[in-house]
Design a protein around this nucleic acid. Structure first.
Lengths: 239, 239
DNA sequence: TATTAACTCCCCAGAAATAGCGAGGTCGAA
DNA sequence: TTCGACCTCGCTATTTCTGGGGAGTTAATA
């Protein structure tokens, strides 16, 4: 079956779309266009919920979820650290658990070649757009060479659409931290104790506590560690 | 003067480049191609250092830096919250300080129209790619409509190149955490207390403590908060 | 001008985390 | 087989953090 839709058209459609299903729709069309076995847009929101749209076999998606494979999946780990698109071959498959995971994926019908594009949005949002196929290395290299730019764009458009539907946008997203709160969170994140932070900032420990508490409140965090983790993953502080 | 270079060619060149100056080079070529007054790639690294490449008048860049305008610049504020490219007209220019800033920018020779694309990398890295021009609203809308996709791609390529030059890349690949340690760190990062983590993992709190301590040791962290922060920013855990 | 938000300081009691010691089991690799 | 790395459980004492209060100052904004 030969594709009868161009990328341009799909992106234009996607831009107008107003349901989450449209993402799935677009993926199917694009898969046909690029003639690959699998194409997936995968997104973990700020609450830790996973959303996947694409063509992986349902059994594999379920298995992946159940086994919490996101923890060991080298695609996730690798893309999280990088900015540019990643060929699966370049990832670290050395650990035994990872190889077992890989073998299982193949059994479930996942292709041996993969190319994943990390995308990041505001507040530490992170998503992945992946194409997957079965072929030899040379063919795959040609494919990724030829289509990288379009795939990057597609990833961008998917993420844009997904963000439009993000549930928890309005409530706490705009809660930014005050300068002192940022100072406090940053110093805590690099290992200072309360006493050290207070001394570094030349304020009393009592005052510091007020900042930590208000930061905790703003971030909806249940304790200091949680607050620092959220501040980090929302990109409010950097260490 | 008519452009004699295509975007494709510039991106290919940029990809091969191995100096930071190549960014400036590429910007000049692209400005010519798109026939706009200004084009800027602006980046704040993890240490808070600002890097700007582009065609803004030196006086304005200096002034901007000196006055710490990054604090009030609505382009920064607006793009930081958004994922998609932003037309400057859509930003919030209501505050008095902001309008004064805008007026000053115009005096320094900045065009009245602008279009900025936010880009984010690992560890909260954030950059902006901006095109700026003087023209009326209708022309500008047509320009951004026509070129948005290419501009997004260009932004992506600039950031990719810039990240290659980022200093703090390879400090230490550091020890990896054991599965249980990852569990513990992850649950702590999402706000569980020790007792809750122990219960969730169905182990005693004493055992949990051993994991936390060994993770702390492996990560060279001085307390739990520090350990979680390090695990997060090294991509060992994802929340 | 009135309001809001940020910054600073203070007390206390109870809850939680840390530091130091210990023990024993499994499993894979050298 | 031995070694290391991982998982599991225990104790005690000390330090640190958290969750309630309250109060006064600036600076900016509506």
């Amino acid at each position: 079956m030969v594709a009868n839709t161009t990328v341009e058209e799909v992106l234009a459609e996607l831009e107008q779309a107003d349901t989450l299903e449209s993402i799935q729709d677009a993926i199917l069309k694009l898969r046909e266009y690029f003639q690959v076995e699998n194409m997936v847009y995968h997104w973990v929101d700020s609450a830790g919920e996973q959303y996947g749209y694409g063509t992986y076999p349902l059994e594999w998606a379920t298995r992946y979820q159940e086994q919490n494979y996101i923890r060991i999946d080298p695609v996730i780990a690798g893309c999280y650290k990088r900015f540019h698109p990643v060929d699966w071959k370049k990832l670290d498959w050395s650990s035994k658990a990872v190889r077992a995971f890989q073998a299982e994926a193949l059994e479930y019908g996942i292709g041996n070649q993969g190319y994943s594009i990390p995308i990041r949005g505001p507040n530490g949002q992170f998503a992945l757009f992946t194409v997957n196929h079965t072929c030899d290395d040379a063919d795959w290299e040609k494919f990724t060479e030829d289509n990288r730019r379009e795939l990057i764009l597609i990833a961008h458009y998917f993420n844009q659409k997904a963000l439009e539907f993000e549930p928890n946008r309005a409530p706490e997203q705009s809660q930014s931290l005050s300068p002192r709160e940022i100072d406090a969170m940053t110093l805590l994140a690099i290992g200072y104790s309360r006493a050290q932070v207070a001394e570094t900032l030349s304020i009393s420990e009592h005052t510091l506590r007020v900042y930590i508490e208000s930061a905790r409140f703003k971030l909806g965090a249940s304790n200091t560690t949680h607050a620092v983790a959220r501040a980090l993953s929302r990109g409010l502080i950097v260490v």
